[in-house]
Structure formats: C-alpha cells, structure tokens
C-alpha cells in the first residue's frame, strides 16, 4: 500500500468522523433544547420549593416539611424508560443495561408519592428520641437540616415504619395522607423503579435536570453534605431536591441484574445480601450523579454518604 493510499483513507476517515461529530452535536443541542422546554413546563407546575420557601419543617409534626402533603409529591401513573442507553449516555455503566438484547426497558408504575427531600437529621433524631432506638451516634450528630447519614438499610426501614404509625395516629396529619395510609398504602422506601422515575421523569434525561452535568443543580464532586433543598432545580421533574448527589439513597430493592422485577428476590436466598442505593453522593463524580446509576451496599452499612428518602405507595 502506497503512502498516497494511506493518506487518502485517513482523510476519508477524518471527513466521516467530522460529519458524525457534527450530527452528534446537533442531536445533543436539539435534545437539550427540547428537554429544557419540556422541563420548564413541568417545573412551572411543581416549582422547586426549598424548605425555607415552603415554611420550613414542623417541629410538632416530626420535623416534616410544612406543606399540605408534608413534603410528599405525587408521581402519576405511567410508563417510563428505565436503564441507560450508552448512545445517549456515554457514561452508562454495564449494570444499567436492561438486558443482553436491550439497553433500556419500559416500566409501567401505578401512582405513588415520594418525599421532596431526603430524610433529615432532625427527622431521624425525632425517631431515635421517641423510641430509644439504638442508632449509630454519628447519625444524629449532623446539622438538623442536613440529610441523615450513617444509617443502615434496616434503620431506614425502621424509621419508615415508626413514622407511618405516627402519621396514622397524629391529629396533625393531613387528611389525604391519613386516608392513603388507612386505605392500605404504606410509608416505606421507594423501590428502584419508583426512585428512577421520580428522578428522571418520562423523557429519558440523564440527570434530574437534563442531559448535562450542572454543579449548580446538585451537591456532587464536593466535600460534605449540604442542607436538603439547598440547590434550586427548576428543571427537576416533580420538583424533587437532591435526587443527584448529597447522599446515596437506600431503596427497597435487592440488588440484582436488570430487568427490574418488582417482586421480592426470593430465588437467590443463598447470595449475600446487597441492596440498591441510588443518586450518588456529595463526594462522587458526575458519572455517579446520573439518574440511572445503580449502587449497592451491604444492608448493615452505615456510611457518611448513605441516607434515604421515603415514598408512600400501594404494596
């Protein structure tokens, strides 16, 4: 092969690469513009509410947010695409792939409610104080409005059970929530699919606010936790805060390969237990702040970067 042939092939390859890159950039711009406009519409309806804007947290109501739904936001029924497509999201990890044959899969979920903020130190402390629960002392030492951390999966569930009982009995509980709980809905951790839908909505975005990483939207690549709701995120679906970063969030799903199975994983009982956590933490890079990232931890793990949020759903 002559030098000329090599140069010719190289130039051809370069030209193809340039064309592909241009198309790719164009696609990304179109997608970004499209998602921004959709997000802006969604955000208008749910408007990001910081605790301060909404009147803060209620000390006499277990330090839950002071709004008509105690900080719970409805996620309507419907289908969403779960998992990652590496063509759209080059940072996608292998465990986000739906199956060997498909990159993503459609999951249809009934309606559920999810808390706008991660559970705070003040909320968890109220539980520890009321029940004498022997939690890790580090879990209640942080600032009251920061997300609770150093909580194991079992402690997160224990808190959820306690709070459910309190809300069922408390005179301050909004009627809607009381009716839900009395009607068989449960206050618990969200499952993996609920969490992902709540984070990225139905349009397949990579981050809760869009497809590009934005340090002004979430606490990641940082040094420590921030108060819940510190980051304004008008584009975030359903107006949820900290679905990226701050602390990883426990879910009620055992860690297993996708496709997502809402049923309990009772077939692989001999495996060592691992439970899914989502959302990345303050110390993680942008790749872990993506909505489809799947982390897993030993259910007894108590770490400074693992917390949780709650959901109300019909089980």
């Amino acid at each position: 092969m002559s030098y000329f042939s090599v140069i010719k092939i190289s130039l051809k390859t370069l030209r193809v690469a340039l064309v592909l890159a241009s198309v790719n950039i164009a696609c990304v711009i179109v997608l970004e513009v499209f998602t921004s406009s959709v997000l802006a519409q969604q955000a208008d309806s749910t408007a990001s509410i910081s605790p301060r804007k909404s009147g803060g947290f209620l000390a006499d109501n277990f330090y839950l947010p002071n709004d008509s739904m105690l900080g719970f936001v409805e996620v309507p029924a419907g289908t969403f695409q779960m998992g990652s497509n590496p063509l759209i999201d080059p940072m996608a990890f292998e465990n986000e792939r739906w199956s060997e044959a498909r990159r993503q899969g459609a999951v249809d979920l009934p309606p559920f409610y999810i808390s706008r903020y991660e559970v705070t130190v003040a909320q968890f402390s109220a539980f520890v104080e009321a029940t004498g629960y022997r939690a890790d002392p580090m879990s209640i030492q942080g600032a009251p409005d920061h997300p609770v951390s150093y909580v194991s999966w079992t402690e997160a569930l224990a808190y959820a059970r306690w709070l459910e009982l309190q809300l069922k009995e408390s005179a301050h509980t909004p009627t809607v929530i009381k009716e839900l709980l009395q009607g068989g809905w449960r206050l618990t951790l969200p499952d993996e699919a609920q969490w992902e839908k709540a984070a990225r909505g139905t349009d397949g975005r990579i981050y809760p606010w869009g497809n590009q990483p934005r340090k002004d939207r979430a606490n990641y690549s940082g040094a420590t936790t921030t108060a819940v709701g510190s980051f304004n995120c008008p584009e975030c679906v359903y107006g949820l805060s900290d679905m990226s970063g701050n602390v990883w969030e426990w879910t009620r799903s055992p860690y297993q390969s996708l496709p997502f199975d809402p049923n309990d994983d009772r077939e692989s009982l001999s495996e060592e237990a691992l439970w899914v956590m989502r959302g990345g933490a303050f110390s993680d890079a942008e790749s872990n702040a993506r909505s489809a990232v799947r982390g897993a931890a030993d259910p007894g793990a108590r770490r400074p970067f693992i917390g949780f949020r709650l959901a109300i759903s019909r089980l």
């Binding site: 055992p254 309990d264 009982l269 001999s270 237990a273 439970w275």
Partner: peptide, 27 residues
C-alpha cells in the same frame, strides 16, 4: 434486621415483609 445486617438475604426479605418467612441454609 440483625440477620439482614449480617448479610443474610432471607433476613432482609423477612424484615421487609414478615408475612412470608423465608429460610435458608447456613453459609
């Protein structure tokens, strides 16, 4: 909860839903 924290998957599932009790062989 203790079984779960000691990484027994059956313990976690039983903790999640005690109405269906799962057993397993010792590891």
């Amino acid at each position: 909860a203790r079984a779960c924290e000691l990484r027994i998957q059956a313990g976690c599932l039983n903790f999640l839903d005690p109405s269906t009790v799962s057993h397993t062989d010792p590891r």
